[in-house]
Computed example of a mutant assay.
Amino acid sequence: MNTRDVVFPKGRQALYERNRYSPAVRSNGFLFVSGQVGSREDGSPEAELKTQVRTAFTNLNAVLAAADCSFDDVVDVTVFIVDPATKFETIWEVVPEFWGQAPFPNITCVGVTWLYGFDFEIKVIAKLPQTA
Rank of each mutant, 00 (worst) to 15 (best):
85 A>D: 11
81 I>N: 06
80 F>Y: 14
85 A>W: 07
77 V>H: 03
95 V>I: 15
99 W>H: 12
98 F>Y: 15
80 F>D: 02
100 G>R: 07
101 Q>N: 12
92 W>L: 05
93 E>M: 04
73 D>F: 02
71 F>Q: 08
94 V>L: 04
102 A>L: 13
82 V>L: 02
92 W>E: 11
101 Q>A: 15
92 W>H: 11
75 V>K: 08
93 E>F: 00
72 D>F: 07
80 F>R: 11
78 T>K: 10
96 P>Q: 09
80 F>I: 00
99 W>Y: 15
72 D>K: 13
87 K>M: 01
97 E>P: 05
91 I>E: 04
102 A>S: 14
77 V>Q: 09
82 V>Y: 05
101 Q>K: 15
82 V>P: 04
100 G>Q: 06
85 A>C: 04
94 V>A: 06
100 G>H: 11
83 D>A: 13
90 T>P: 02
74 V>A: 10
100 G>V: 10
72 D>I: 06
77 V>E: 05
94 V>F: 02
71 F>D: 09
89 E>M: 10
87 K>H: 15
99 W>V: 03
88 F>C: 06
87 K>A: 11
97 E>N: 05
76 D>E: 15
87 K>Y: 07
95 V>Y: 11
75 V>F: 09
84 P>S: 13
96 P>F: 03
79 V>R: 10
100 G>A: 11
97 E>G: 03
79 V>Q: 14
93 E>Y: 00
96 P>N: 06
93 E>Q: 14
78 T>R: 14
90 T>E: 15
80 F>N: 10
85 A>L: 13
90 T>D: 14
94 V>K: 01
82 V>F: 07
76 D>H: 14
97 E>W: 03
75 V>H: 03
96 P>Y: 01
100 G>D: 10
79 V>K: 07
101 Q>E: 15
